[in-house]
Amino acid sequence: CDVHGISHITGGGFDENIPRILHDGQGLEIEEGTWEILPVFRFLEKYGKVPHREMFNIFNMGIGMVIALDASEAQRAIDILTAAGEKASVIGRVTDTEGVVIR
């Protein structure tokens, strides 16, 4: 696959790390729930009184790495990662508006 960028989602999570692999003027639209969100994150949000949007930057909601590539290669990349024992899914798309939007 022709990988355009890889972002390790650590401290700073979605808002700080992913934009680093994008070009100026680009952003990202994330579709929440396109990956398995473990119950522990809902527990922490509820009982820790963490604002929902902050959960993506503090705990990353279970996403460890983002790989940016052309949409036409997404399934091939998922198949390769799955064969290697990893869980992978398409979680969003690159947009022409800077910033990270989570829907």
Results as ranks from 00 to 15, higher is better:
residue 9 I to Y: 02
residue 26 Q to S: 11
residue 15 D to A: 14
residue 66 V to M: 00
residue 97 T to E: 11
residue 84 A to M: 15
residue 69 L to W: 06
residue 90 V to C: 02
residue 36 E to I: 09
residue 25 G to L: 12
residue 30 I to N: 00
residue 10 T to A: 10
residue 76 R to C: 08
residue 82 T to C: 01
residue 84 A to K: 15
residue 38 L to W: 15
residue 89 S to Q: 13
residue 15 D to Q: 10
residue 58 I to M: 10
residue 60 N to M: 05
residue 31 E to M: 11
residue 61 M to C: 12
residue 80 I to V: 15
residue 37 I to S: 09
residue 47 Y to M: 08
residue 59 F to R: 12
residue 33 G to Y: 05
residue 41 F to Y: 15
residue 35 W to I: 10
residue 91 I to G: 02
residue 28 L to W: 02
residue 40 V to I: 15
residue 87 K to L: 12
residue 91 I to D: 02
residue 76 R to K: 12
residue 18 I to R: 00
residue 36 E to G: 03
residue 5 G to Q: 04
residue 44 L to T: 08
residue 11 G to Y: 12
residue 95 T to R: 01
residue 56 F to G: 05
residue 58 I to K: 11
residue 15 D to V: 11
residue 30 I to D: 00
residue 14 F to N: 08
residue 12 G to C: 14
residue 68 A to F: 09
residue 9 I to V: 14
residue 82 T to R: 04
residue 36 E to F: 05
residue 75 Q to A: 06
residue 80 I to W: 04
residue 89 S to C: 13
residue 19 P to K: 00
residue 97 T to G: 02
residue 62 G to C: 09
residue 78 I to D: 06
residue 28 L to C: 11
residue 20 R to L: 08
residue 27 G to D: 10
residue 89 S to T: 13
residue 81 L to Q: 07
residue 38 L to G: 06
residue 87 K to T: 14
residue 85 G to K: 07
residue 10 T to M: 09
residue 24 D to H: 03
residue 27 G to L: 15
residue 29 E to N: 00
residue 54 E to S: 13
residue 12 G to E: 09
residue 54 E to Q: 14
residue 24 D to N: 01
residue 93 R to E: 12
residue 89 S to E: 12
residue 12 G to N: 08
residue 100 V to R: 00
